[in-house]
Design a protein around this nucleic acid. Structure first.
Lengths: 339, 339
DNA sequence: CCACTAATTACAAACGTTTGCAATGAAGGT
DNA sequence: ACCTTCATTGCAAACGTTTGTAATTAGTGG
């Protein structure tokens, strides 16, 4: 026994002197097989710790019961919540999940997507990376009639369901909160403007300023390359030197904290001199001093919804979905805007 | 054409009026097939964007060229570096990677491990979760002669290669640094003591105290349930109230920061009144004020080494490896111990 | 023009499953 | 004693590949 590694249905059939089909049926509780036989098979299967070979099953059924996730980063509280949402929905519907982290690299995204295109997964959930501008790899996926759902950073050129946050609304709310706090000179510091999500957050900012009758000052607007801490520190240097702003909407909590650090170093007090709103509700925002007002990002819900749409498509290939689902952000008030 | 989704070798054979074996050989550049045929096949393959079916290949070759990772958390700077190390080594050796995050749950770990046991992966890299005390699922894996390598949180009961950090040495170094800084009343706050890594860090702490001739005070020693921020805040409350300590070694940067926050609130100054050393070198340690002295955790190297050992075993199944590889930590000095 | 080799190609088995259909056997009714 | 019926089982195909071996074709030399 145990020729290679695992026991197969064939081994059991051989030992019992019956055919593989009977073994297969017995294990499936098929009433066609005589109770005595069934029991004998099951006992032997348990004894040898038989587990059906995943690959053989996949080939036979032409489905892997696995969904793929293409995501730019893992160490990211938002993405991690998305993954959790996806996993929870997938597991409870009998699906497994394989995650590919592209590390925001276009090349990696292409490689990873193509690695999943050949029958490895039944469908794909994708969040495109910052550096992606060509979507052929996703198109190839879609052309093979493989279900595909985008979330967060989507690709407009492809006709598949999408789950997004209303970043415009969120940007608007964040800025409006600063207005209500009494700010009149409100700066914007955001992530790469080639991403739709950042265009939207910025758009919401502009609308709020406009509605409040506040002027848009170009020197108070920075679109950063990465959206991380160092970018944040850099971005506000000029504004701080000029002592010109009294409010800041940052497209990322890390940007916000980077900016706050620069301002604190320059002797500005937060929120007294400058009120700050971040984005994403990272846990560091509760730990940092001052704690950070921010916009929530319902990652778990986004993941769940995306998984739901994908699995719907997998189970129902003929019915094409193309809806876009929009989730909403909420303001979380903390010290950084508490005047 | 395109009956189901993807083009198969059979479709190409049919269209060209030749046999599947010829097509297969043509695609593999086998010199047996006539150049003209080979070219025709390749052209058609490119035209239809043919990609060999992953599942069929796996079944045929009895290998998936995929390695599995079982890891307690994703949103964790250390684990994420480990994953990167694994991925980089795996990719450059032609392997793919499947990540399963157990969220520190024993049940999830069992499910995930069993999901990988049936020929889905060629081998497994595992870091056992905090809540795991029974290792049968890993044993079953090993009994099937499937290559298995543990990293960081290992399982001693199983005879497979392991890659670990010298947590004892690191705990010793951290504590000794506090001694050198001039601390004489040094507290320890660490994660769950059922984990070997925490026992080791604690062991290093005790050794350093011992060598310095400092007494071990039970009321200065806390083993926390989770090792997160809130645990940190809680853990030092009594010590702070008693104004009894002048140094703290925390088994986690989050514990350290939680503790610092409590101390700051109580009016203590860091590092003047209490010097603090954390563990893991999380990025928040550079952002927080004061910035945090900590012990590095070479996650990338750990991942690389673990992947290397695993792939060695996969490619060389007869040669059993059982070595334990030990990596070393380094002290990173920042403000929290700068007197 | 036949035989012998060399160059191509096709056939079939195998990987581990499931499942439609055929086959076997026994039992029951007449 | 024979036909029917039912319960149980086995055979074979299929999923998409690769590969050893057999078969076909072409080419060469006599």
């Amino acid at each position: 026994m145990m020729k290679k590694g695992s026991v197969t249905i064939k081994d059991i059939a051989l030992e019992l002197g019956i055919s593989v089909s009977t073994v297969s049926r017995a294990l499936a509780d098929n009433p066609l097989v005589k109770p005595a036989t069934r029991q004998a098979v099951k006992e032997l299967a348990k004894k040898y710790n038989y587990r059906p070979n995943f690959t053989a099953l996949s080939l036979r059924n032409n489905r892997t019961r696995t969904i793929g996730i293409i995501i730019p980063q893992l160490v990211h509280e938002f993405f991690s919540m998305v993954i959790r949402g996806i996993e929870d929905f997938a597991y409870s519907n009998g699906y497994n999940v394989i995650i590919s982290s592209t590390h925001e690299s276009y090349e990696r995204e292409v490689i990873d997507t193509k690695a999943l295109i050949n029958g490895r997964v039944d469908g794909l959930l994708a969040c495109v990376s910052k550096s992606t501008t060509n979507y052929d790899h996703f198109k190839e996926f879609a052309e093979r009639n493989l279900p595909l759902v985008f979330f967060d950073c989507i690709c407009d050129e492809i006709d598949s369901p999408k789950v997004v946050l209303d970043d415009f609304e969120a940007g608007y709310q964040a800025t409006q909160h600063l207005v209500e706090t009494g700010c009149t000179q409100i700066a914007y510091v955001g992530g790469p403007i080639n991403l739709q999500i950042n265009q939207d957050r910025f758009g919401g900012y502009k609308k709020a300023l406009n509605e409040a009758g506040l002027a848009l000052n170009e020197s108070w607007i920075k679109h950063c390359e990465t959206g991380d801490y160092d970018d944040g520190s850099e971005s506000v240097r000029d504004m701080v030197a000029a002592r010109s702003i009294d409010g800041l909407f940052a497209g990322t909590d890390m940007l916000a904290i980077g900016a706050i650090k620069t301002m604190k170093k320059a002797g500005l007090q937060i929120p007294k001199d400058v009120a700050v709103v971040g984005f994403s509700n990272w846990s560091i925002g509760t730990i940092y001093e001052p704690s950070l007002t921010t916009m929530s990002q319902p990652g778990y819900e986004m993941g769940q919804k995306a998984a739901e749409l994908l699995i719907q498509q997998i189970d129902n290939p003929d019915k094409k979905l193309t809806d876009t689902f929009t989730l909403h952000s909420e303001l979380i008030q903390r010290e950084s805007t508490q005047r």
